[in-house]
Amino acid sequence: MLSYIFYILSGLTILTAIMMIAARNPVHSVLYLIITFFLISGQYLLMNAQFLFVVNIIVYAGAIMVLFLFVLMLLNLNKETEPQKSMKTKLAGVISGGLLLVNLLGALVKSNSSTESLPITDVGLVKNLGMVLFTDFVVPFEISSILFLAAMVGAVLVGKRHKGEMEAISE
């Protein structure tokens, strides 16, 4: 039963991912990517990784994609005027990506990997994951807050209008 849900979710995920890169309108791309992230969250739930399920929805589908949508609207890019690459370049890109896929899967097919199904575990519950996060991984956890601070300061500094730039824009 769970396997069927996995295959349905996988098919939809791949479909929406392809729609994401194929959509001409950037806003449609963002919306398809949000659907893709929700479907990937479904995969997390299927693996009983409840913490990652919630965090994926809040951080990715919630915060990051809203940030993307916000910037798109702010720059007024929600139209289909994006210049397209030439057909030859697109074909070359698809072929190179497909070759990468063949390469990755070729290595998998040759290996004699197990065909037994994934075990059902409770390592992904909030309680167990929090225990590991605040005992074994507490130093990286604290360092990540410094990373956030650095990213915040960097984003503000890069995005800030510098002196004298205002006149150049208004001219």
């Binding site: 769970l2 396997s3 996995f6 295959y7 996988s10 299927l46 693996m47 998998l108 990997s113 197990s114 065909t115 037994e116 199904s117 994934l118 075990p119 059902i120």
Partner: peptide, 8 residues
Amino acid sequence: MPPIDHYI
């Protein structure tokens, strides 16, 4: 549950 191969 599907095997790990399908996730790869």
